[in-house]
């Protein structure tokens, strides 16, 4: 980690740029300094990887179950729509 001493992005600045980096929204110069820093800094490299893991795990929540009563209400509405009857208010 000490190799990063003197680089123009410090660790506490890099951690604020991770989302811009992952979205490819950094200007080319900042992006290069960002990746140069990552090459030399285990701490920041780990931090970026953990943000990727966080995103991946958050994505898995899409499969979580819905509250059964809400689900039932919506399916009832669907059946009403399908049968051409007025949906319950």
């Amino acid at each position: 980690m000490f190799l990063t001493h003197g680089l123009d992005i410090d660790c506490n600045e890099l951690v604020e740029l991770v989302t811009a980096y992952l979205d490819d929204a950094l200007d080319p110069d900042t992006r290069r300094r960002f990746t140069d820093h990552l090459d030399l800094c285990d701490g920041c490299d780990t931090y970026v990887e953990q943000m990727r893991q966080t995103i991946r795990l958050t994505g898995a929540l899409a499969a979580d179950d819905l509250a059964p009563d809400l689900r039932e209400t919506l399916l009832t509405a669907f059946r009403g729509w399908k049968n051409g009857t007025a949906p319950p208010a």
Binding site: H5, D10, E13, T46, Q53
Partner: peptide
Amino acid sequence: TPWSGHWTAVPQPWEL
């Protein structure tokens, strides 16, 4: 401080 802005203790990789 000399290491201003650098990790005091680096994040530890997650063993998920």
